[in-house]
């Protein structure tokens, strides 16, 4: 099937590579790898929200910020123990996710994009302005999760989170919910006329993906040790979108690979400065223009796709252009 074009086999190989990599890498690249998992979590969950369910949201990194800040503030100012702080932050993200999901029920396309963009900016500006609580642009210190100086535990924690998130999301998509989400994306009115309770599933997908974004933010905050409002700036959202689109907006593993490849590339090419993002913007446009399912699914199933396309030629008349 198109939507699960990554075979289990190639995923297993990639997982083994990811598990073994730290053995051959220096601390710098382990650090980079651990950050890559943050983006992988965001890109994959955004792919579920935007690619599967068709809810193009610009507020995804704001949920990472929400999770990160909530956990940091609970653990710091409120003095919660770490697990309690983390769980509180996750629950908060679930509630806010449900709220946003409910608010945007009637919005679609560019209106949804503008709405979530505005929500995200409002939240970020609050983080900037309310210095008394968030320390604004100075940054909020966040306690670490592990003792010791090594990033290796974070690397494996991040990897575990990515694997867990993928398993959970794929599990969800394998049930009838996956079918309903795609139906909603294709035509919400028709889905409703087919008996699908679209309200319920749209809110559900916002809750699930917001929680994963928040988990990513919590992980990132405790790992890096400091949070600034810049975690939620528009270029960060652009990075996540580019990763998912380049990797394959309708393929969760594709989005993960897109995130890892884009992030590693941008680290490797550090000496080229902003040229990297020029390249990324160009790649985003070109991929969307010429390969809307992303690069990695295309590479994976080049031969199969050609067959499918041949088979998909309408047998009677042309496709209606109604």
């Amino acid at each position: 099937m198109l939507h699960l074009s990554f075979t289990r086999w190639s995923q297993a190989v990639l997982l083994i590579v990811a598990l073994l990599l730290p053995l051959g890498m220096g601390p710098y690249w382990i650090h980079v790898g651990a950050i890559a998992w943050y983006y992988a979590l965001l890109a994959a969950s955004w792919a579920l929200l935007a690619g599967y369910a068709g809810q193009f949201s610009f507020a995804h990194v704001a949920f990472a910020a929400l999770g990160g800040y909530a956990s940091a503030l609970c653990a710091g100012q409120l003095g919660f123990s770490l697990p309690v702080a983390i769980i509180t932050a996750i629950l908060l993200a679930a509630v806010i996710g449900a709220l946003i999901g409910a608010l945007v029920l009637r919005l679609s396309g560019p209106y949804l994009a503008l709405f979530t963009l505005a929500i995200s900016e409002i939240f970020r500006l609050m983080l900037v302005a309310e210095e008394d609580v968030t320390r604004g642009m100075l940054g909020l210190p966040v306690p670490g999760l592990f003792t010791g100086k090594s990033d290796i535990p974070y690397y494996y924690l991040g990897l575990a989170l990515v694997v867990l998130a993928l398993v959970a999301m794929n599990g969800l998509l394998a049930t009838r919910v996956g079918l309903f989400l795609r139906a909603i994306r294709e035509d919400e009115g028709a889905a409703r006329a087919s008996g699908v309770d679209t309200t319920r599933y749209k809110i559900l997908v916002f809750v699930v993906t917001s929680v994963i974004a928040a988990i990513a933010g919590i992980y990132y905050g405790h790992f890096i040790g400091i949070l600034t409002p810049n975690i939620a700036i528009l270029p960060e959202m652009g990075l996540v979108i580019a990763m998912a689109v380049i990797g394959g907006i309708e393929s969760l593993p594709g989005a993960v690979i897109g995130a890892v490849v884009v992030f590693l590339l941008s680290e490797t090419l550090r000496s080229y400065g902003e040229w990297r993002f020029v390249l990324m913007g160009l790649a985003l446009i070109l991929v969307q223009r010429f390969a809307q399912n992303g690069l990695f699914p295309v590479l994976e199933s080049l031969g199969r796709r050609r067959q499918e396309r041949r088979a998909a030629i309408p047998s009677v008349g042309g496709p209606s252009n109604g």
């Binding site: 400065g273 902003e274 020029v278 990324m280 160009l282 985003l284």
Partner: peptide, 23 residues
């Protein structure tokens, strides 16, 4: 998916141009 297509390519243009502006 026309709506998403338009958002992505025009947003991609922003990433491209604002960074091109920087360099």
């Amino acid at each position: 998916r026309k709506d998403e297509y338009a958002i992505i390519v025009t947003f991609g243009l922003t990433i491209l141009l604002s960074n091109l502006g920087l360099v």
